[in-house]
Design a protein around this nucleic acid. Structure first.
Length: 888
RNA sequence: GCCCGGGUGGUGAAAUGGUAGACACGGGGGCCUUAAAAGCCUCUUCCCUACGGGGAGUGCCGGUUCGAAUCCGGCCCCGGGCUCCA
């Protein structure tokens, strides 16, 4: 934030940390310049229409069985302290265009908005400012709401939800009780990142090199009692039901990989006199090549298997692994594998060989059985490990090309060798045969495994939903009865853990101590993660004021499921997977009619912005930066310390280099949408957001690009409104080129909205205005134009509609019909190619035949020159398009 | 390393087997104006030109085709994500 905004455009809501300065000379406000009284003035018409829509309840929607329904949803925002930047309205604008179009095609449209308002940043702000996070959050929401309302989105504001309010989290808790009732919630000891100095648990991204990134305090892994949700029970269904969804292929693929189904076998390895462990493998066909085994450091059998001589080394290794985060373990092991020998040997069940058992952190306790059989000849990771520690590498497949197994692993198919009775088999046959063999002998069994793990569902934080759970002294864990909900967040004296490391809620001693069926009891002091509220908000929107249930059956049977969901690809896995999981649980409880929550999903591309950095590392806001062409300076790049030439200069004349990056505080390149609204109007902002390029594409914001869009809207205004009087210009008569341009635009808009391509329709609407060349078209054409423009630029369209004498909103007018006959011309431009190169263009009747076209082509002097003296080998004729003469 | 996106003028882009650069931004020239702003007209991929044209060109190399930005194979670069999943 901290972007330049003119004083007059200051939003009324207070916004912490903001500043303002006067607009520079180059940033004249076209809205305020002198001129005719009735020029296009969004500052006047936009608030008026926003007021009208609000007062008239234009977009209020009810469950009307006479209409088909459409549920359009954008991912709701987290109300951060810095407000929305111009990247956010991209998906809201796209959804709004679809919603407005669907109303015009007779649908009952649900297009709600709300706020994902629990979460860590507000808690941090509360600690710093010593204010209640609810107060801070509500202030932030007020500014977000103002920003959204000034962009003219047709949201169902009467359905707004905020996940941190008791009337919402009441029902989040209610759904948790359902999960608990279904046996899907349980307590488990789970390792967390514990920071003793802060007395708190940290998220993975807050820990780097074993230290808290903010303070540098050391972090250790510590087991804590945590609530878990059994999402793994749903793994197969979460995988199977992806098939019917209209989602981007990339997102489906990421979900499939995250769920990570694999088929293989679980095999038992005996250690003489010390017991046995099981390994999971997808390659039971390589069992004869298993030359050692590896246990995860956390595996229960490690201490039993460690011999006296190896004990010191193993213990040191385990201690080191324990304090590394999963991420660190991965990064370190990518560079070089580590591990230690336990001193014990296990029996390979298929050939009776004794193989050494090692401990290494490249084996994860959380996957499979936490133990593996290692086949270095056929697995890269095992190969790297075996090479480092001098373990045997024994191939069990001959791939037929003399592969050097000592140099590298090879995981492909071939003919089995060194595998006793199985020699000669190919992979598929071998797999089936050896699993049968293992099952017959009782050495193992067929097994399906998933990468997906149960969901760690508790946080040691204040600003989240309290669990509706009490603990009695006898160790009993009891759900709070549904009629006693909500369990309200208590007030606490500080938003940090207690002195003995209990979560912040433990500070509320009056709240903490309660009774359960007459016995003294303590309330659960963990809170739910931020995902909880966003797992079901799309259902609450269907029936947001229900005080008896999270949502009523009547509402949910009408709205059914979300028809179109637009949001960032960063939520491709977790949010979407968690919401799908809860939805399936609710489905199993008979509370929702569909197996899946979101039928169609679309990811908008991130909007980037140029950032300008001087060699000291300081960022200059793009507003003050200018390019002085030809005036090059050489500076040391703050990005890579290399000398770099630049002709960009900050407002103070300092040379700066340009780089594209995420819009945000850290690069000092955010742009507040209200700044653009003040300068150009909401309609310009909306259209520019869409005009920048395809919705799914990552693209850079350039405020200057708004100029062209604003000019287009001004030109459209002038086309229909007399700028001196403000009266509508008299309508003209229709003409062929204008009618054609209109129907091209109607077609492009109609198809574009369906395909979520919102950029090219704008070009076609610009072409329509250009085609009119200042001559007002016929009334029918003008009105059709306003109607197709209205999803993109609703304020301008409404204003024109009103000035043409209509007395109600155009939001429910029928969408204009496309007439293909308007596009038909009598003649076409026929392209004449010789050897694939364009040599001439001829104006010919549209239905010209091949013979006639070729005759005309050959008669053209330029064409004649190119085929003169050559033999014609082939003649291509594409009706209505081109002729290609192949001559050599 | 693996997975997912993406490379087209000075810039954002359009064209998904048939005229590469629509529509805009920026820039040049002109009109209007006492002047400026706004507006309007016009040029604007690069190179050559005897001004008629000609040649090259969609990250690089190759292929298929009468014809490729578009389809196929190989490579390079950029952005995002990642749980060594046995």
């Amino acid at each position: 934030m901290g972007t330049a905004i003119s004083g007059s455009s200051r939003p009324t809501a207070s916004r912490p940390g903001s500043r303002s300065r006067a607009l520079g000379p180059g940033a004249a406000n076209p809205v305020c310049v002198e001129g005719p009284m009735s020029r296009y003035n969004p500052a006047e018409i936009e608030p008026a229409w926003q007021k009208y829509w609000d007062e008239q309840g234009t977009f209020h929607v009810t469950e009307d069985p006479a209409k088909p329904k459409f549920y359009a949803l954008c991912m709701f925002p987290y109300p951060s302290g810095s407000g929305l930047h111009v990247g956010h309205p991209e998906s809201y604008t796209a959804i709004d265009i679809v919603a407005r179009h669907k109303r015009m095609t007779g649908h009952a449209v649900l297009n709600p908005i709300g706020f994902d308002s629990f979460g860590l940043p507000a808690e941090r702000a509360a600690q710093k400012e010593n204010r209640h996070p609810a107060t801070i959050t509500r202030e932030r929401i007020a500014y977000f709401r103002e920003q959204l309302q000034k962009m003219g989105f047709s949201f169902n504001w009467e359905r707004e939800v905020s996940t941190c309010e008791a009337d919402y989290y009441h029902w989040t808790q209610w759904i948790f009780l359902k999960l608990h009732e279904q046996g899907l919630a349980y307590l488990a000891e789970v390792p967390v990142n514990w920071c003793p100095a802060q007395g708190t648990v940290l998220a993975n991204e807050e820990v780097v090199d074993g230290r808290y990134v903010e303070t540098g305090d050391p972090v250790e892994r510590r087991n804590m009692k945590q609530w878990m949700l059994k999402i793994t029970v749903y793994a197969q269904r979460l995988l199977d039901d992806l098939d019917g969804l209209d989602w981007p292929e990339g997102v489906l693929e990421m979900q499939r990989q995250w769920i990570g189904r694999s088929e293989g076998a679980q095999v038992r390895f005996e250690v003489e006199g010390k017991g046995a462990f099981e390994v999971y493998t997808t390659r039971p066909d390589t069992l004869f090549g298993a030359t050692y085994c590896v246990l995860a450091p956390e595996h229960a059998l490690v201490s039993t298997l460690t011999t006296a001589e190896q004990q010191a080394e193993v213990e040191t290794y385990i201690a080191a692994a324990k304090n590394k985060s999963d991420m660190e373990r991965q990064v370190a092991a990518d560079k070089e594998k580590t591990g230690v020998f336990t001193g014990s040997y296990a029996t390979n069940p298929v050939n009776g060989e004794q193989v050494p058992v090692w401990v290494a952190d490249y084996v994860l306790i959380t996957y499979g059985t936490g133990a593996i059989m290692a086949v270095p000849a056929h697995d890269e990771r095992d190969h790297a490990f075996a090479s480092k520690f001098g373990l045997e590498i024994r191939p069990v497949y001959d791939e037929g090309k003399g592969h050097d197994y000592q140099a590298a692993a090879w995981a492909g198919d071939g003919a089995a060798v060194n595998s006793g009775a199985f020699d000669g088999m190919a992979m598929a046959e071998f797999k089936a045969a050896i699993i049968d063999h293992l099952e017959e002998k009782g050495l193992g069994e067929r097994k399906v495994n998933f990468k997906l793990r149960d969901w760690l569902f508790s946080r040691q934080r204040y600003w989240g939903e309290p669990f509706p759970i009490v603990h009695t002294e006898d160790g009993g864990i009891h759900p709070v009865p549904a009629e006693q909900l909500p369990v309200a967040l208590p007030h606490v004296d500080a938003y940090k853990p207690t002195a003995d490391g209990e979560p912040p809620l433990a500070r509320a001693t009056d709240w903490l101590h309660t009774t359960f069926e007459g016995q003294p009891a303590l309330r659960e002091t963990n809170t739910m993660p931020q995902w909880a509220g966003s797992c079901w908000y799309y259902l609450r929107y269907m029936d947001p004021h229900n005080t008896e249930l999270p949502f009523g059956q009547e509402a949910v049977s009408f709205w059914n499921q979300v028809d179109l969901y637009i949001g960032g690809v960063e939520h491709a896995v977790l949010h979407l997977l968690y919401a799908r999981f809860w939805h399936k649980v609710l489905y199993d409880c008979g509370l929702v009619p569909t197996k899946e929550p979101f039928q169609r999903l679309f990811n908008q591309g991130m909007i980037l912005a140029y950032a300008y950095r001087e060699q000291s590392g300081k960022y200059h806001h793009p507003d003050g930066v200018v390019r002085r062409k030809g005036d090059m300076s050489t500076i040391t790049s703050a990005w890579n310390q290399q000398p770099v030439e630049t002709d960009w200069y900050g407002a103070d004349g300092t040379p700066v280099e340009e780089k594209l990056g995420k819009m945000g505080k850290s690069l000092n390149n955010s742009v507040d949408p209200l700044e653009i609204v003040a300068k150009y109007g909401a309609d310009t902002l909306r259209i520019y957001e869409m005009f920048m390029g395809p919705l799914e594409q990552v693209k850079p914001w350039q405020t200057a690009g708004c100029e062209g869009v604003h000019r287009f809207l001004s030109r459209a205004w002038r086309l229909f409104i007399d700028e001196e009087t403000g009266e509508p210009r008299p309508f003209g008569t229709t003409s062929k080129p204008v009618r054609k341009a209109l129907h091209v635009a109607i077609n492009e808009a109609t198809e574009g909205i369906e395909a979520l391509k919102f950029n090219t329709p704008i070009s076609k609407m610009m072409e329509f205005v250009n085609a009119c060349r200042g001559n007002t078209p016929a009334r029918e054409e003008a009105e059709a134009f306003a109607l197709i423009l209205s999803p993109w630029a609703p304020h301008l369209a409404e204003e024109l509609w009103k000035r043409w004498g209509h007395t109600t909103t155009l939001s429910y007018e029928p969408w204009p019909a496309f007439d293909a006959s308007a596009l038909v011309e009598d003649t076409i431009t026929l392209v004449i190619q010789v050897m694939g190169k364009v040599r001439a263009k001829l104006e010919v009747p549209k239905d010209i035949g091949k013979d006639e076209a070729l005759a005309l082509a050959k008669a053209d002097p330029t064409v004649a020159k190119w085929i003169d003296g050559k033999t014609i080998r082939k003649e291509i004729f594409v009706p209505g398009r081109l002729v290609n003469i192949v001559a050599t």
